[in-house]
Design a protein around this nucleic acid. Structure first.
Lengths: 110, 110
DNA sequence: TATTGATATAAGTACAAACTTATATTATAG
DNA sequence: CTATAATATAAGTTTGTACTTATATCAATA
């Protein structure tokens, strides 16, 4: 299986995820924006969408002949978790209360 | 300039950063571990170290004939910031207190 | 100061992956 | 039930980049 960071290693895919972070979008809308911004073809964008689907970063539902894409957060949370090991470096003095609150929230949601 | 995610798109570089997250390491130590784990040569590892230096993920200081590497957090914080736009999805109901605490901490450190 | 040890750089190769054009699929409209 | 519109897949090409081996650099030591 492909690693989350490998997927994010491509600027086109990152841009697509940025678009999806604002809400759902049909394939055609994504093709329009990406095509304009990166100058690549419809199949190229479609292939990137396939990568995002296969890696769990996005899901698509059929709506007539359109495919509407939604961002999925699981792999993004993986990335976030990977960053945890470095957080001590840039948040060296997060106090007990803040940690408590954060940890409490996390637990509650599992 | 190369994007932070492009740098993290390589498993060897991610592993090197994981090693550095535990503390400083000389090039030779990194070569030993990575060589064993990935089966690649000293120059290959050295080239990855160069990428990490050039992209600001790591810095090195000379210590005799050794080069001691340290992780630098700036680009990692960039990645963290990029993830912000998705956090609303998996932390939808972070309460006012938690936000207050987090925001207070951030401000204080600037 | 010649040798060794640790690391970096140079130059060339190989391969994964991001493109291209062409075509297949599937759903709606006419 | 054909035509069109939206999207995906196939097949082939190109290219960036992660390797390789060979060599340069530079500090420590004998």
């Amino acid at each position: 299986m492909v690693h989350a960071f490998d997927v994010l290693g491509d600027p086109v895919r990152r841009r697509i995820l940025e678009l999806l972070s604002k809400g759902e979008h049909a394939s055609g809308e994504i093709v329009a924006v990406i095509g304009r911004e990166f100058g690549i073809s419809q199949p190229a964008v479609s292939q990137h969408l396939a990568v995002l689907r296969d890696s769990g970063f996005a899901s698509a539902r059929a709506e007539g002949t359109r495919r509407v894409y939604t961002v999925e957060t699981a792999p993004l949370r993986e990335v976030d978790a990977w960053l945890d090991r470095f957080r001590g470096e840039w948040l060296p003095k997060m106090d007990a209360l803040a940690l408590e609150v954060a940890r409490g929230k996390k637990k509650r949601r599992m």
